[in-house]
Design a protein around this nucleic acid. Structure first.
Lengths: 161, 161
DNA sequence: TATTGTTATACTCTATAACTATA
DNA sequence: TATAGTTATAGAGTATAACAATA
């Protein structure tokens, strides 16, 4: 089977959304969409610190966590979780496999599907990342009280749900 | 001056981040980063409805609003607001100019820079979009009380700031 | 020298569509 | 027929680097 060569890992440092002094932002500050975007970019910086050098982007992190918590998950299901097409889930899996973090095993119940599993190395990596990302996430939210952070999570959940 | 041909407008409908039943999401639900992403995707759908058929993506909407509220703004400053490089701000401006929504006028104080201005057509368009986007944003947040929505905006602002 | 806009180019991410092998 | 994975291809968005004109 010929494998596509996975792309080199060079994650982008998302440019900060600068607050340009003296500029009128009009309705933007009243919009949840814009505020969400700004908050997300801010959080991304702590994520980037927590995964520095690994080439792990947020979708890749999500994928690793989900594979770890759901061993044997298929590529298609992984794609659904991430909101990407099957072909994208494949590229993603190739990327992990090339690094020896994830392996494909034939699903026992369905000859078409692969079951995805973390390798021992993948297990170790994801454990470390989970810890560092969670720490960074907390640290970035240090301007919020514990109660505010919980409330924020709750409100975001309501919005997304 | 040879102008680059702006790309056709075919905005993507961001695939929803499905909640796959029976799957273990592990730490993800405790992370602000992941919750922000899910909320953002949800909000994006109302944005998409509000700008349907115009090819206006969130960054383009932000740009139109900012140019409208700050006539004469330079491409570089616009790029800073959006967190993109100068070359990207140029492509963006070309896109608007090709539709007759924005025009470049030589900046009186600096012979290198362009000042960006909405055309009458652009003014009309952005006014309508602002109304519809704000309405959609409110509607999408209908599951939140007015107080919760304000609190969410406040917390997001704290996080981003 | 530094900055603005521009051009050329490359890369990432993702989508669609066609193909295969299984179901 | 339908689905999982694969492959090929295309497009949107953005980055970097080099250049001209102006500061």
């Amino acid at each position: 089977m010929t494998k596509r060569i996975p792309s080199p890992h060079r994650p982008r440092v998302l440019a900060p959304i600068e607050r340009v002094a003296g500029l009128d932002y009009d309705v933007l500050d009243e919009l949840l969409g814009y505020s969400l975007r700004r908050a997300q970019v801010a959080i991304f910086h702590s994520f980037y610190e927590a995964t520095r050098g690994l080439g792990v982007t947020p979708p890749r992190f999500t994928a690793m966590v989900v594979v770890g918590a759901n061993p044997g998950i298929s590529q298609s299901t992984l794609g659904s979780v991430l909101g990407i097409a099957r072909s994208g889930a494949m590229t993603l899996t190739d990327w992990f496999e090339a690094r020896g973090w994830v392996e494909r095993r034939r699903a026992p119940s369905d000859g078409r599907a692969w079951g995805l599993h973390l390798t021992p190395r993948g297990e170790k990596l994801v454990a470390g990342m989970k810890r560092r990302v969670a720490e960074g996430d907390l640290k970035r939210a240090a301007s919020l009280t514990a109660k505010e952070r919980r409330e924020l999570l709750r409100l975001l959940g309501k919005l997304a749900g």
